[in-house]
Design a protein around this nucleic acid. Sequence first.
DNA 1: GTCTATAGGTGGATAGAC
DNA 2: GTCTATCCACCTATAGAC
Lengths: 186, 186
Amino acid sequence: MPSNQRILDLAERLVQTRGYNGFSYADIAASLGVTKASLHYHFPAKAALGKELIGRYERNFLAALAAIDAEVRKPRDKLRRYAGIYAEVLAEGRMCLCGMLAAEYATLPKAMQQELRHYFAENERWLAAVLDHGRRAGELAFKGSAREAAGLLVSSLEGAMMLARSQGNTKRFGALAERLIAGLAA
Amino acid sequence: MPSNQRILDLAERLVQTRGYNGFSYADIAASLGVTKASLHYHFPAKAALGKELIGRYERNFLAALAAIDAEVRKPRDKLRRYAGIYAEVLAEGRMCLCGMLAAEYATLPKAMQQELRHYFAENERWLAAVLDHGRRAGELAFKGSAREAAGLLVSSLEGAMMLARSQGNTKRFGALAERLIAGLAA
DNA sequence: GTCTATAGGTGGATAGAC
DNA sequence: GTCTATCCACCTATAGAC
């Protein structure tokens, strides 16, 4: 009796470690102790599973960002919490789901590509708002648009996760993140 | 009569766009107008092809870095040229070969993982030297070790490439790169 | 909802003729 | 060096019994 939740949980971890093209229904079936066929009852096509994977990930992520807004006031602390989310994921031995999918972008179903763009757009929107407020309040300093600074922040964190894993140096991620935020101090 | 060079050229482009797990001998064979079997004469195993792909990429990259050292003196100009390499690759519709492979790291043959770590280590070594010299000369400014600053630079550029493509915004990469370098100005 | 069985395709790889 | 032919493993997906 694998609920959709459990299937998505396993698929999520697999994509975060091996990528969308790096896992199969057989992997999930083996973990759950069921057959591949029964998974197709819950998710008829892998593309639909993949799309839902991004949707759920984005909902959870946006909820985490809302929690930050509710709990923290200072822009710099918000950025630290934001980077902290990435650090936690990395500490679990995972990559960002959407960072992995961004690398596989050219091979993904159209529906997944669209969901992916939405995820990054929402991400950048939240960061840009934090940066903009921070600059107006005189607590943050950077040149150019907040949007562009936000884009660089997301890019850097995603890239740092990837390279941290492949260099077997997951600890350094925290230092790089802190350096990024320090560079935005007023 | 596909020379090893032509095979590697095609495989390289495929990995840079679709990833190591996203291409097959069939793709290369079709492009060259030969059969899969004849490719196995040149590269018996895909893993060996992949390893050679990284080795060749690294040799070319290090040669480009040596050219920069020979042609440019100012640390900041060296960094601009360095980022320019990434920009050119992106302009061709490609990702960095090793950035793509870093995302697929967990699924790669051991030999490829090893080559990959070497690539990033060499990369960081060159950048750290530039940063260190620049700081000593008073032309660059940053906190902490040059090694760590170099790591952040590589990570950010790799991440920015990935996200630029998935957001359909390859033009912005140049602006992000310039912003990164500007942040290191003395 | 889960199973067995299977279809139809593609993956990397090999043997042996030419 | 390239071909045909083939192997075996794996993939996503479906049909139909239970």
